[in-house]
Amino acid sequence: MTTQEAPPIARTAPHKRRLKAPGNRNFSKPVRFIMLAALVLFSGFPLYWMLNTALSQDSELYGQAQGWWPHWERLADFGDVIGSVPIFKWLTNSMVIAGGTTLLSLIFAVLAGYALSRFKFHGKGAAGFLLFATQMLPEALLVVPIYALFASLGLLNGMGGLILANVAFTMPVSVWIIKGAIDAIPYEIEEAAAVDGCPRVTILSLVLTPLILPSIAAAAVINFFDGWNEFLLAKTFIAERDLWPASVGLASFVGQYLTSLNSVMAAALLFTLPALIFFLLVQRRIVSGLTAGSVKG
């Protein structure tokens, strides 16, 4: 074995490979340190400041008196910190909207992804183009005609209508993720089931679906947080305060300081945390899913 070959680390300890891989060394150590510190400050500070504001005393918020360190003791009575912001009501609404969006979107996506992956049929190209092109359509440009459509159908001011509209925006990406996942499953597995006389619906639901579960989970997370974060459609369609999702509810506090800001920030923190945790858990999968969907599409 000569030294020109790949470093043995790669083979003996695959879990350490990424850390130990030589990679490119474009930066000297001090330069790298300064740049990294700047990046961490840039990316991390606003989030830190959200936490710090949520956990600050009312009196600190005015006249630049806010301390640099959070008052952790305020965590003990977080209920008071939230104050008069009806965040739990809004978070429940967000949950319903995001959950409904995810469920509906995934049903369409599994069926369509299966068709695009496993069949040849007339109009396949057109269907693929439709699924690709609709991803390009800006929400804000469609909101007017969708508003007009929903007004005539009586779908405004309800979570049902909002879910229907959300799905149109989240479904295409999911279809590509599911299609990609099914593409990666060897056909022989289904073949065996088909020979046994299994109907195709059964193959899809009992054989394929469990195999692509990780991708379905990733698509579900993307869909859920699209629904969770969605603001424009919700703001346009839902006028009643009690039906607002948290995005619209919290947005009503932007630049408006009648409600103490620490309460608003604490509520925003509750709204942010689930997204933060989930994205960290499935980050890698989401990146490959998103790029598979919109790049190779």
Partner: peptide, 13 residues
């Protein structure tokens, strides 16, 4: 992290 922060929360911060 910032990528996962909802837009509305981003605007508030």
């Amino acid at each position: 992290f910032p990528w996962a922060v909802p837009t509305v929360a981003t605007a508030l911060i």
